[in-house]
Design a protein around this nucleic acid. Structure first.
Length: 266
DNA sequence: AATGGGACCTGCGCGC
DNA sequence: TGCGCGCAGGTCCCAT
């Protein structure tokens, strides 16, 4: 499932691969993924446009175009962008003037593609909290202070802080030694600072390894990311903690699978 | 305000 | 062998 590191990886690869290219044709093989506007307007608005700028906000990719519009892509769980495209089971194919193409794939059809006049007007983007890289520990502490929510669902809340999903929330909490079910305002100042630095560290390390390939995520090239082998708790239920050998536990928090070490995380 | 659950969707792994 | 079930998770939406 693409979270901040996976989307950032794709963003950086897109900059190398398709920035400056002109889109000459868009083939929509599964219209359900086009959320805005109509499929027809989507295709017309993209055809002939040059990709001028590529941005990431939270888990959202934004391709700004020469005609002033933006292609806004949320991969959700199983969305993929692959370049050069192989046109096998793709939901959408983007063809460029140099005769190369890019595939958008999405097994489960949760992903969302939009063509917008101003991506900043997307409600989801308006409501996003800050990027972890754009705040400091003091600000993070202040944000946490007022919240009574359980800490793990809170750091996964995109309106609280942007880009952290289920996997990295679990990993960061393990590294900070904090139980995922703790009330946010029960964390000591020291724990808040540690959690903040571990969120940043975990995300940065994952970006260095080009993301975690669990489920469907692949890099733009179609190759898997390399970070999954460094996971300490995610998807390791029953396996020994890499620090203390206690079996990793799985519970549900906010309806999501939550992995933690009952001994290391208090 | 916070929390829980279901919905969206499909493929996979499990148990019988 | 084959079937049915639960599960996976990002986000939205509704109910409590």
């Amino acid at each position: 499932m693409p979270e901040l590191p996976e989307v950032e990886t794709i963003k950086r690869e897109l900059e190398k691969a398709v920035l400056g290219k002109r889109i000459v044709e868009v083939c929509v093989h599964h219209p359900a993924v086009i959320r805005q506007p109509s499929v027809d307007k989507f295709k017309k608005g993209l055809t002939g446009a040059v990709i001028k700028n590529i941005l990431r906000r939270a888990k959202v990719l934004i391709l700004e175009l020469s005609n002033g519009k933006s292609l806004v892509i949320h991969l959700k769980m199983t969305g993929q962008l692959v370049y050069p495209g192989v046109s096998k089971n793709s939901r959408v194919t983007f063809k460029f003037s140099d005769r190369t193409c890019m595939d958008f794939n999405d097994q489960r059809l949760f992903a969302e593609l939009r063509l917008m006049d101003d991506w900043r007007e997307l409600e989801f983007i308006k409501n996003l909290g800050p990027e972890p890289s754009q705040i400091n520990a003091g600000q993070f502490k202040e944000m946490l202070g007022r919240k009574k929510t359980k800490i793990k669902p809170l750091i996964m809340d995109q309106s609280f802080i942007a880009g952290v999903g289920n996997l990295y929330a679990a990993e960061a909490l393990f590294r900070a030694g904090i139980h995922p079910g703790r009330a946010a305002n029960s964390l000591s100042d020291k724990e808040k600072e540690l959690l903040f630095s571990q969120i940043k560290n975990t995300l940065e390390e994952a970006i260095e390894h080009k993301g975690s390939s669990v489920d469907q995520y692949v890099q733009l090239t179609g190759l898997p990311g390399g970070y999954a082998k460094y996971h300490k708790v995610y998807d390791r239920a029953g396996k020994p903690c890499l620090v203390c050998k206690t079996p990793i536990k799985r519970i549900a928090l906010g309806g999501r699978g939550t992995y933690f070490c009952p001994k290391c995380q208090k």
